[in-house]
Design a protein around this nucleic acid. Structure first.
Lengths: 202, 202
DNA sequence: TTGAGTTTTCAGTTTTTTGTGAAAACTACT
DNA sequence: AGTAGTTTTCACAAAAAACTGAAAACTCAA
């Protein structure tokens, strides 16, 4: 809105938008793999990649989704605390802006996922454990086996949870450092030839 | 099939089955959060929690799903390498048995998830990077910002990937130990009063 | 208090995912 | 080769999830 560039390097701008769109599409695909809606992920991607605050209408136009959908996606993202509301002086609309620190963002995502994935399972295991022992007088071996297996799962997830909380918790800057230390060859680091790095993942 | 217990402690057995069912249900719910089908997760849960090899018909009966569905779920689980085929002598049917080592199981799950979630994103980011730079002569700042953001995401996921591979890779026993060391108070460890542990997750 | 601008809600619709069941394919034995 | 037991495939059905759009609710300045 500020100014149309007088030198309309149209091709360059188009390519920028193209790159953005690709990023949005990829992030959106991830979203569906993670169990959040494609749109929600796309909104987040859009706000992150452009970096600037956007209002509902801009988001609708850019992503081609309905007002209702944007409203719901934005609400979830606010709950996740990966975007925030900003008010522009002299404008009644609400604008939204993404968390720009990737690690903070990743922590927020991790936190939500743990909340939704791991914690409920641990709670369920607790309940089940309270259910099973009552039978233990009668058929000892089977019950013991059952409990051992449940216990094993619980320990496993427990370790993961504890560890994750250290990363995802409010005081959770730690893992970034820890991770970088643990990872001998952190990541290709290629400044201009990123394709080489692919071997790391084959 | 071996023998009906002459003392039919019916109530005890019912409770055992009840506990199993609850475990299966919880695990199944997790499955849908992880982006695998509920049935696939349930089949896995059933095989893990009972520990014994089961054939298609037993699974169908116990979970109340169709033959086709069991066949497909089992195939995926075999691909994930969290269950294996066993042949019982003198029986033409195929039986399936779950990996009983929880850490091996968790690693297998993690491995698949990384493959499906992180790797595709990193690949996409590589592609996008190749797209964006071509515009750099014309509108430097915006392009630079875009590339920085993409790079930041890539670094973040890169670190996570590297770290995860150390855990999930074939030589990946490491994290269990690392995790236990890192986690000061590893996990409540309550032998008989597990409910106390809940505070760790509030 | 009004009303224009804006956001939220939600019943109904569309899209996507998952599950079924029966036919086809496979397997091992005779 | 024939065949009975078993598994796989896949067109279609059912269920779940996501999305739309318009009405209702909200907000704030006048």
């Amino acid at each position: 809105m500020a100014a149309k560039p007088n030198k309309p390097d149209v091709a360059a701008r188009a390519q920028l938008v193209e790159a953005e769109d690709r990023f949005i599409a990829s992030w959106g695909r991830m979203g569906s793999v993670w169990g959040i809606s494609r749109t929600m992920a796309e909104v987040h991607a859009l706000l992150y990649i452009t970096g600037k605050p956007m209002c509902t209408d801009e988001i609708m136009d850019r992503l081609g989704v309905s007002r209702g959908n944007v409203s719901m996606s934005v609400r979830s993202l606010l709950e996740w605390a990966v975007i925030e509301k900003v008010r522009l002086p002299g404008d009644r609309k609400e604008y939204f802006q993404a968390e720009q620190d990737v690690w903070a963002m990743l922590r927020a995502i991790a936190r939500e996922r743990i909340k939704r994935e791991v914690d409920p399972l641990l709670d369920a295991l607790d309940e089940i454990d309270q259910l099973a022992p009552q039978a233990s007088k009668h058929s000892p071996e089977e019950v013991r086996d059952l409990q051992q297996r449940i216990e094993a799962v619980r320990d496993g997830f427990g370790v993961i949870t504890t560890l994750s909380h250290k990363f995802a918790g409010p005081r959770g800057a730690g893992l970034q450092t820890a991770a970088k230390l643990l990872a001998k060859a952190p990541i290709g680091r290629a400044k201009k030839h990123p394709s080489k790095r692919k071997e790391n993942r084959a």
